[in-house]
Design a binder for these strands. Structure first.
Lengths: 359, 359
DNA sequence: ATGAAAGCGCTAACAC
DNA sequence: GTGTTAGCGCTTTCAT
């Protein structure tokens, strides 16, 4: 019995051939007579030989690893995205190193550094910091794809000299603009005029646009910046409701914020949708379980991850400037109703069973 | 400007010293005069030198990577566990390779093989297959820790010659037995006699014990084996409810099965808790959002991951046979009430606001 | 078709 | 305290 793992040398000796031949046979490159092939395969099997990725990686100066950076793996949206990445990576026999940034640019920078040191070949990231952080990745010749959003200060459509190497980084995004327009249009159609927003900067801007487009006045006080950390989301939602009791509808920028909004509303004895209508991003299982069922903007989270992985794994050097944009969908359930000004009683669409309608 | 990444050789040349000195200075091992140290540091900084993990790994025959295997990363329980692992790993500057097994032993075996090939140093796993699958890991001298459950056919307390090397593998488990006893006791106390169970084998056995302990007759037809894949869970729950309309309470073995149970009950027009009481494993955010709020057995998922990571990272070779068992807690909310036999109307504990009580 | 040999970038003896 | 050197296990010319 051997003390340790067999190396290519052991196999070569056992098969009575040179190491190069073993390498050729096992990797499928080069040629070998079927007789030699036989011998090598037999020896390898007998010694239970498993090529060490270590030697291979050093020689090839690559690891075949895929780095994945998400803000928070316990957020179902990101775990679905990760699941998509893992699924695609598995089909290509790549392994995935996962890091969570907590939306912290410093932590992100550290993790990026780690990827570079490890000679990770490809990276898929939901970026938290600004664009400069990614320059080391590009310099290290690592294939990079952004998912869900772009780094701060990186416009989706480069204008003139603004087009740096970073603008060439492929991206897979959700069409949140359309989703937001649909949601705001829907709420405006129900008669809402004081619609609040809770969420990140990118979607905030789309929200303002949508308000304008629907002829609803924008009210800065109703627009709160929040990224959806679990510990701050509730406070953000509650303080918004308290500061502006006249708010009649709220769009939550992700499922954590939506959860916080529902909880805060309940805690403050605001009835949904009688006192306040709620729409949130991400269709999560509990949206159908809570009461009333929640109207949401669904995003193809898993697909986004899968597509990002396809891009980063298959495309040799995708130089596309246009991001891949996946559709979103407004799923109308029971959490929205016309506003009931003052003490008026509404009697529309409050049935929790009212679900499955898609708009 | 350099064409490519600087190597230790470049730094040595630039600093006018030997490569060993550079290695010593940068890794902190060995000694160097402050003057040389200075020179080396300066040169390294100037060349923006980042030691390649590739060379280092090959030399040391290790990667410093931690492999993590979970059944499903989109299951909040496992993503919380993963989060705990990631958090601990980050504090030790280790990177984590994540794989999902989908509860499939074959897939698990493949992923294990990958870890061995990659010379992963440590593995934390929620095992899906049986014990033999892990022998290659042990043979490769990889530190292994099981989390959440043990491999099939591996009793927690080895008896006699049953004690193989696998029984020495440390494990971090939840005290699900206690949780189940508390839940069954609670339900029995409410007067339930036909209590169903939906879940994996391990908990199933504890459930039977708990029934006996509470003097409730076990009914095989009410005990359904299900592992909580999203696509089969609903069918399992629905068919149980349909086959045995006389069921008065159900214990769901994880949050996916709980979700399915709530949904199936609603679909079949069973009122919770009037027609059927529900308790589920895992305290998830939506348990407080759904109506009625859900009574759950909470488990310290994140802690389990963190502790497992501590074990696998800190302990040199933890030869403890006793698994680490973390406490569970029955969190009583609004989804349980005394059974209402026949067409009787119950009027207990149906208030959705009835939450926060801990037992 | 196949073997010998030269590294990939790093660490750890071992000399001095 | 510091340089020289020998590999770690693999792939890949380059001869043969």
């Amino acid at each position: 019995m051997m003390d340790h793992r067999a190396t290519i040398k052991d196999v070569a000796a056992a098969a009575g051939v040179g190491v190069a031949t073993v390498s050729r046979v096992l990797s499928g490159n080069g040629s070998a007579s079927s007789r030699t092939r036989e011998k090598v395969l037999e020896a390898a099997a007998r010694l239970d030989y498993r090529p060490s990725a270590l030697g291979r990686n050093l020689k090839l100066r690559r690891t075949g690893a895929l780095g994945l950076l998400v803000p928070d793996i316990t957020n179902l949206f990101y775990s679905r995205l990760a699941d998509g990445v893992l699924s695609c990576a598995r089909s290509m026999n790549e392994h995935v190193i996962v890091g969570t940034t907590g939306n912290d640019p410093e932590r992100e920078a550290e993790l990026i550094g780690g990827f570079v040191d490890q000679s990770v070949d490809r990276v898929i990231a939901v970026p938290s910091g600004d664009a400069e952080a990614w320059i080391p990745v590009l310099r290290a010749d690592i294939h990079l794809v952004f998912a869900d959003r772009l780094p701060l200060g990186l416009s989706p459509t480069p204008t003139g000299r603004d087009a740096t190497a970073l603008h060439k980084v492929p991206a897979v995004l959700a069409d949140d603009r359309s989703g937001i327009h649909a949601a705001v249009g829907y709420l405006a159609g129900l008669g809402h005029r004081r619609i609040g927003f809770l969420g990140g900067n990118g979607r905030q801007q789309a929200f303002r646009e949508a308000l304008t487009h629907s002829g609803v006045p924008a009210d800065d006080e109703l627009i709160v910046t929040a990224r959806g950390a679990r510990d701050t989301s509730y406070a953000a939602a509650a303080s918004l409701f308290q500061r502006r009791p006249d708010i009649s509808a709220l769009l939550a920028g992700n499922n954590i914020l939506g959860e916080a909004a529902v909880l805060a509303a309940r805690e403050l004895d605001l009835r949904v949708p009688k006192d306040v209508s709620i729409v949130m991003f991400d269709d999560v299982p509990w949206a159908e379980l809570c009461s009333p069922t929640l109207t949401v903007i669904s995003q193809p989270a898993r697909d986004m991850g899968y597509r990002a992985a396809e891009l980063v794994l298959r495309d040799p050097r995708a130089t596309r400037t246009r991001p891949t944009v996946l559709p979103t969908e407004l799923v109308v359930r029971g959490s929205c109703a016309p506003p009931t000004d003052g003490a008026g009683r509404g009697r529309y669409g409050t049935d929790p069973r009212d679900r499955g309608l898609r708009g």
